[in-house]
């Protein structure tokens, strides 16, 4: 049977399954990083953020445990994994199975989407395990709060992971093609990413009366950025198949 007879969707799925098996270490890397840094935030920093308030008579310190720390390092791990997946070595390994350029790139993108979804769930797991350990081993009293993560946190974690993998993938491809392209892309990223992330935050005076952030709007913008970056990556990697 010629490779031309195989449907593209089947080919992508078969290759994605192969990649999930071959590069399962990408998942373990991300989880190990999450475990290590959730422990780091628990033991060394004793919480992610510290608030201190009081009057002349009393001083109150609140250690806030939030998912930010774990998420930050999870994103870095995903970025590195995707950079490695975009390397020339990984590209050559794509040819281990019957494939085309477009199929190989698309299956890598599907792998990243699955990696982002799993990394989101394991980040949340790491966070809850860390908080539970803190509750068991820490004498400090806890302030009652809503312990359930809202859906928006899952959504924004997922799209942030998507953007991280897309950035890493595109950066890796750009680095293979041209160092100038890579440097230009990184510099552009430095200007664009903070603007996108903090686009609705204004000066501190305005923040106090600011409307609650529309997380879904931010997620949509981030999702669009991920799509654009993935499309760019696919476009750079592809060439016209001559039949």
């Amino acid at each position: 049977m010629s490779s031309n007879d195989i449907r593209m969707g089947d080919n992508i799925w078969q290759q994605t399954k192969w990649k999930l098996k071959a590069y399962n270490s990408g998942f373990t890397t991300v989880v190990v990083v999450q475990i290590l840094f959730s422990l780091f935030f628990l033991s060394v920093l004793d919480g992610m953020t510290h608030l201190s308030t009081g009057n002349m008579y009393m001083n109150l310190q609140v250690s806030i445990f939030s998912i930010d720390g774990v998420l930050m390092f999870s994103l870095i791990a995903c970025l590195i994994v995707s950079l490695i997946m975009a390397s020339q070595g990984a590209w050559h390994e794509n040819m281990s199975v019957v494939t085309t350029r477009i199929t190989a790139t698309l299956s890598t993108v599907v792998y990243f989407i699955i990696l982002s979804a799993v990394a989101t769930l394991t980040a949340v797991s790491s966070f809850y395990i860390a908080v539970w350990l803190a509750q068991q081993f820490h004498d400090t009293e806890w302030i009652a709060s809503d312990y359930l993560l809202p859906l928006r946190t899952y959504v924004i974690c997922f799209v942030l992971h998507l953007v991280a993998t897309a950035c890493g993938f595109l950066a890796g491809i750009a680095l293979e093609k041209s160092k100038l392209l890579f440097t230009g892309g990184v510099l552009a990223g430095f200007f664009i990413v903070p603007y996108v992330l903090f686009w609705n935050l204004k000066g501190s005076e305005e923040i106090s009366e600011a409307e609650p952030m529309n997380y879904y709007a931010v997620s949509s913008v981030l999702f669009m950025i991920a799509i654009v970056l993935y499309t760019l990556a696919i476009w750079i990697r592809s060439r016209q198949e001559v039949r």
Partner: peptide, 9 residues
């Protein structure tokens, strides 16, 4: 005190 603030800081 400790507080769990799940939303992203």
């Amino acid at each position: 005190y400790n507080k769990m603030q799940p939303v992203l800081g």
